[in-house]
Design a protein around this nucleic acid. Structure first.
Lengths: 203, 203
DNA sequence: CCTTTTATGTAGTGATCGATACATAATTAG
DNA sequence: CTAATTATGTATCGATCACTACATAAAAGG
């Protein structure tokens, strides 16, 4: 019934997923505005016509690259927050450790560094990334709240401040990675951030 | 003797310091690559010829803008680290509080956000800013070391890790500010970072 | 006065940007 | 086979980029 019907027309000569991944690498290195179509087509091994036929436009390509980055590059950073059968502390620590692992390649996070300035060209992209970062902070706060309900975070904890603090550390890790900090140093920063937990969330 | 000799030639019609400050604002909003000469000349109220005559080129203008930003925009953030007659903890806290005060305008730090990606156009500028950020971390580490010599930081403290941690928070504050965090929230993040001190640097 | 010096305003430079028009190639449907 | 459909490669498009050539204006030195 639902057999994949033979595609009409001339078949594509390149692997769409593979070229998308290469585009993601370029966006990671150069950011949305800094990645020119020449950079992209060179890295992807196709020419502009094929890129536009397959992905629509630069902005659409970037959106797909962000989705790929968020969803497919290993264990998703924010998934650690969704784990309910551990303490909020363990969930936050897992999130930071996963980030340190992923960022320790000199590039940091695409959501954090993909567009750090609003320009005439990147308005929609900038807004999308900003919203994703805000959502990250919301997720951390919600996880702390859930921990409070579960009893591993004491009542009276300033959840908003603690969420803002760990978001700041998470985002700061991208800058440290971009500045060349080795994975070991990022890991040491996470150690410090977690040592801070008991001062912020008294047991 | 050293009386300022009358300047030769047609006098400049604009105030150099004033236009430099306006250029700095543009670079803060858009970054080095994102600030076009059109953006700059419009904000500065002069045309390209005058800009090039007075400042040389876009890169030289940016360098002057960074110097102005670092040296003249209120109490300098890193000056707080130079104070020797307080504890290392008080010095680091003063640095972070000054940063939270300065960043709480929706723009963050020019050194941190001025060029977040290396491109063909910004190579030298990117390198300079990266070095400045690295120097910040070195200054923090040196201040901790001095605190250890003075006795307010216990021997055995992992100074490198603590310096990396507070650098991460400092840089993360710029991203939080860019994402619209109000000054009060930045201040709360600093509160959290300083509550962490005793866990990192046991008294 | 005239010469020198510096700044200004106009009107560009070549390069690169993201995006496309168009002819051609390669496939399926009938 | 022909028609329809989709992809490819070339050769651009107009806009914008950082930057500058050039004529003119405004000052000082002589």
């Amino acid at each position: 019934m639902t057999a994949t019907a033979k595609e009409r027309g001339r078949p594509r000569k390149f692997d769409r997923d593979h070229t998308l991944r290469q585009a993601m690498e370029v966006f990671l290195d150069r950011g949305y505005d800094g990645a020119s179509l020449g950079d992209l087509t060179t890295a992807m091994g196709i020419n502009a016509s094929s890129l536009y036929a397959a992905f629509g436009c630069k902005e659409a390509l970037f959106r797909e690259a962000v989705d790929l980055y968020v969803n497919a590059a290993g264990p998703r950073t924010l998934d650690a927050l969704a784990v309910r059968d551990v303490s909020a502390r363990a969930a936050v620590e897992a999130m930071l450790r996963e980030a340190a692992r992923r960022f320790g390649n000199g590039r940091g996070c695409l959501v954090v560094l993909g567009a750090t300035h609003r320009t005439a060209d990147n308005e929609a992209v900038f807004h999308d990334l900003t919203e994703r970062r805000g959502q990250t902070q919301v997720l951390i706060r919600q996880r702390l709240k859930q921990g409070m309900a579960a009893g591993d975070v004491p009542t009276g904890t300033d959840i908003g401040a603690v969420a803002a603090f760990y978001t700041t550390v998470l985002h700061g890790l991208s800058l440290q990675a971009r500045d060349g900090a080795p994975r070991k140093q990022l890991s040491a920063v996470v150690d410090c951030a977690m040592k801070a937990w008991d001062g912020l969330v008294p047991a």
